[in-house]
Every structure is written in C-alpha cells, then in structure tokens.
Design a protein around this nucleic acid. Sequence first.
DNA 1: TATTGTTATACTCTATAACTATA
DNA 2: TATAGTTATAGAGTATAACAATA
Lengths: 149, 149
Amino acid sequence: MADELDTVYALTQVSSLVQGTLERRASEHGISLIQTRLLGTLRDRKPTVNELALLLGLDKSSTSGLVDRAERRCLVRRLPSQIDRRSVRVSLSAEGRTLVEAITADFEADIAAIVEPLDPLERATVAALLSRMLVAHATGRGVELSTIP
Amino acid sequence: MADELDTVYALTQVSSLVQGTLERRASEHGISLIQTRLLGTLRDRKPTVNELALLLGLDKSSTSGLVDRAERRCLVRRLPSQIDRRSVRVSLSAEGRTLVEAITADFEADIAAIVEPLDPLERATVAALLSRMLVAHATGRGVELSTIP
DNA sequence: TATTGTTATACTCTATAACTATA
DNA sequence: TATAGTTATAGAGTATAACAATA
C-alpha cells in the first residue's frame, strides 16, 4: 500500500513539473497553454470547429473564440468547407507551425534534461511502465491518447 | 536516443492525464484547478498574500483576487497579522478544508486506479525512478517540491 | 522611502443561451 | 427540423500600474 501512495505522489509531482514546464515555454513564446494545445492539435489535421471542440474538450463557442484570437495573430486560418457551406476547416498557418514547433522543441529539451539523471536502461523502464499504464487506461475507455500535452 | 524520446512522450502523456484528472475532480466539486491549488497550499500554512503569491507563482494582485473569490465562497478567511498591520494571513476555513480533502481523496483514488495495472514491484520501481528525477531536478535549483498539484 | 495589500483596467478563457445560415 | 458556427453575456483568472496604509 505504501508503494502505491508513493507512486501516486511521484506521478502528481512529475505531472505538475511537466505541465508547468510546458506552460512556461509557451509563455516565453508569447502564447497560452490552450493556444499551444490548439496549434498542436492542428499539426496533423484541419478539423472543423466542432471537431476541434471535441478534440480540445471545449464548448464550440469557446473554441470559436480561441480560433478568433489565434487567427487575429495569424497563427491559424479558417477555410470554407467544400462540401458543407455551414462548415469551416481550421488550418495552421506557416507562422503557427513554426511557433508550435519551436515551443515543442524547447519543451522536449526541458523534459529530456529532467530525465537525464536516469541511465538509458532506467529511462527505458520508466517509458515501458508508464506506457503500459497509459494503454491500460485508454483501453478501459474509448482510446484517446491525445497527441499534444 | 530513441528511449529518451519515448520517455519524454510517456511523461508528457501521463502528465496530461494526471492534471486532467485533477481538473475534472475539482470541477465536479465546483471549483477550478487554481482554487484547488490555493486550498491545497493552505492545508499546512497560513501565509500572507505575498507568500501565497510566491507559492502559487502568481502576481500579488492575482492572488488577492483569488483569495477574494475563495473568501466569498467561505473557503478561506483573511486574518489580520499581529505583528505587521499592513499584512494579512490567509487561512483555510473548515469548509475549505473539507472540500480540498474530498477533492484530494477522489483524485488520489483516480491515480491509484491508473497505477493499478502495474504490480507492486513495478509501482515501486516507477516511484523510485521518478523520485530520483524529481530530487535531481530540485537539487539543480532551489529545492521547491510543491505539496499539491 | 520601501513594503503590503488592494483597486482599476484590460485581456484571455470559459460556458450558456440565443441567433444565422445552411442542411 | 436539425446542425454548424457565431455572437451576446457573464464570470473567473491573469498581469500591469497606480494607490492607501503602514513600516
């Protein structure tokens, strides 16, 4: 039992550290965590506003506003859908892509540095065990491992 | 190299899951993540607004507003400082304590369930390796392992 | 003068409800 | 009618700057 509490505690601490790191990097690049998440979601997709809302777990009105502010900064564009004239496709601009890639690179370097004290075998062990946890958890639901933090 | 990227990825995924879990539990109890963090910080302290701002990593004006809203819901109280009449001590109310403990209990049960697929030895391994990472990271700075997510 | 906390202001982020334009 | 998206509104959360009270 004690080991379970230790594990919960360690996971909680690590999670704060990791999320805090991402938030700090995003902020250094002048955008918020949710804007970073928006850009990250758009790296390999051009979803409609509704799809985006589902992916981000937000209301469609919140998503619309999020896209407004990102568009105002020229980070994303709204493209008219060809098949449904009510619909819109949200797409990353070149500027948005450059930005999200810079943030991601900085963030990943930070986490790599945090992981660095472990030797390669230990890192592989952590990765394997955490992955098993994640897979088990995702399988217990509808499987939805988000792409970006 | 590949193992390092895997580790970064696994840590990122786990962190989103853990923070998302906390946020969902907080929201089920009717408060935000930052309000939960405020209450958590006050569990074993009665800091001044300035100290609280440092602990939460916020500006003192943001902190003042945060405390305003928590006080309006009777979750915290402002006590006049005895030694410095400019100062205020922020203190958890009984109601606030009950609330943060309920959220924490739910949250810890969630994480325990997520960790459950690993056997006790594997859990102990994860806890030990993550703890080493955390200690190494904290030692590299001014040591500041936050108490609550 | 310097510090503690609050307030005024301006923005982002969020949800609910009402709207429009398509379907 | 139903769906896709926007807008109006209201509130939390955040920072900067200016302020009052106290040190």
